[in-house]
Amino acid sequence: MSISKLNCNTTPAVLVKRERRKSARPAELLAAALELFVEKGFAATRAEEVAKLAGVSKGTLFLYFASKEELFKAVVRENISGRFTEWNAEFETFQGSTADMLRYCITAWWERIGSTKASGITKLMMSEAGNFPELAAFYEHEVIQPGHQLIQRVLQRGVDRGEFQPIDMKYGVYIVLAPMMFLAMWKHSLGSCAASAELVPEEYIAVQIETILHGLCTAQPPHPPSPENPAP
C-alpha cells in the first residue's frame, strides 16, 4: 500500500487525536521534567530520561525546548514564577486585616506550592546554584526578587495601616520566608522519613504564623483566661 493511499485513508478522528497528542506534549514534558529534577537534581537529570518518561523521543523534546537549561526555566515558570501575576492580583483585592492576609499568604503557599513537587525546586536551587550560575541568576530574577517584593508589600501594608510595627523590610522578608523554606527543605528530605511523622505541616505553619504576628502586631488582643488560670 502506498504512502499516499495511507494518508488519504487517515480519518478526521485520527487527525484530531494526533493534534491533541501534539498539543499535550509540552505539558507532559514539563511534568516529567519536574518529576526528575526534583528526584535526581538538575545535573543528574538527562534529557533522554525526561523524554522517555513523557513518552516521546529525545528529538521531540528538543523541538519544544532548545536545551536542558531552557527546559528547567520552563518548569520554573510553569510551576512558580508564572503565578506571580495571579498572586499580586489577590493582594490588590484582599479584604481584611494584614494579619489575616499574612495567614492567607503562607497557608495558600503551602497548599499551592509547598505541599507539591514544585517546592522541590527550592531544595534543588539551594544545593546546585553554585554549579549553575546562569540558572541561579534566572531563579533570582524570576522567583526570589518577585517573591521578596510581594512579601514586602504585605508587610508594608500592615505598617501603613498601623497594624504592624515598622521594621527593616530587607530582613523582615526573611522572617516570613524562613518557615516556608524550612518546610520546602523538610518535605524533600526528612519529611519522607517515618522519623519526621511528628511534624504536621499545617500545625507547624499555624504556630509559626502566630509567633511572627506576635512580634509584628502593634497591639495584641488579651487571651481569654483559661479555667486553670482564672483572671484575678
Rank of each mutant, 00 (worst) to 15 (best):
V14F: 14
R103H: 01
L199P: 01
G158L: 01
E49Q: 12
L177C: 06
F164W: 02
H223G: 06
H141G: 07
K73L: 05
I212K: 06
G130V: 04
S23N: 14
A51E: 08
C193A: 13
A32D: 03
R25L: 14
A206M: 09
P12R: 11
A32K: 00
V143D: 04
M180A: 10
L124C: 06
E39D: 06
E70T: 07
L183V: 09
H223E: 15
L150Q: 10
M101W: 14
S196F: 11
A33Q: 06
V173I: 10
L61V: 01
P146F: 07
R18L: 12
A54Q: 01
I175G: 09
L6D: 09
M1Y: 14
M101R: 14
G114I: 09
Y64I: 07
N9F: 15
D160F: 01
A194C: 09
N229K: 10
S67C: 06
T122M: 15
V50C: 09
Q220F: 11
A194Y: 07
S192P: 07
N131Y: 14
A136L: 05
L183H: 10
I121M: 08
R157F: 00
G82Q: 03
Q220L: 15
V143I: 08
E163K: 13
G41D: 07
F72G: 08
K58M: 13
P146H: 06
T45G: 06
A33M: 04
F182Q: 05
C105V: 14
S196M: 01
F138Y: 00
R161P: 02
K170M: 15
F164T: 03
K123V: 12
A194P: 07
W186G: 08
C217L: 14
M181Q: 11
I205W: 05
L30Q: 11
G59P: 13
E163S: 02
T11D: 13
G158H: 06
M101E: 13
S81N: 04
Q156H: 11
A33C: 05
S189F: 00
A194H: 11
